[in-house]
Amino acid sequence: MSTAITHTAILTGRSLRGIWRMPVFLVMNLVQPIMWLLLFGQLFKSVVDIPGFGAGGNYLEFLTPGVVMMMALFASAWAGTTYIQDMDRGVMDRFLTSPTNRGALMVSSLLYQGMTTVVQTLMVIGIAWLTGARFHGGVSGLLLLLLAAVLLTAVFGALSNAVALLLRQQQALIGISQLLTLPLMFLSSAIMNTKLSPQWVQNVAAYNPFEWSVIVGRQALSAAPDWASIWWHLGLLAALALVMTWVATRAFRAYQRST
């Protein structure tokens, strides 16, 4: 167990050194969410006027937690790229022929992704605040939003890593992540209140882990959070993150079987 923790720490350190040397990636990944925030924010400004939308009349405030989760979803769906780079070199093979803990390889990747999600979320919230959005959840609300974003990152980061280990090709990874992320995003309340969508969308969204994170984030930032819903959906996200991490760690065996 202590080996697993040591290995997780030094492998996470390796990833952090990388981003420290190339902080431009951190900023590059922010371009998209800022565009969503500003463009969607303007484009759909008046949807809040539709009867039954709610959200207290400010679409930017409604949209911000959705954009945070979209950012976390899209970034984590790419997480496997790092594995593919390591596989294209002999780095992955070196790890796997050494006593490097497999769980640590997976968890360190997710930890690193989670940390970048936290930094980027804070930046998006800051920009939303500068453009006039006001949040009422306080520090605890912000922490819950961050927790939901990190758990979402773990779920899809683990999935992306597993796909990378099984398919080993950048193109395949891109294809699958695109196939997955867009429907997940639109079958949710990230940019539109699903109460105004057809019933089937609401039904599907209830099983969408991305939607769970949006619910937690939006409730946590609201003035009167629905605590039962927050804890329930956080619990679902945490359970799924654990399962996905475990499954993805198993994918190392499949990688070695087919090597």
């Binding site: 390796r14 990388g18 390591d86 294209d88 070199r89 002999g90 780095v91 093979d93 070196r94 050494s98």
Partner: peptide
């Protein structure tokens, strides 16, 4: 183990 491809980051 030193693979055919570079094993360094």
């Amino acid at each position: 183990f030193v693979a055919q491809r570079p094993v360094t980051d």
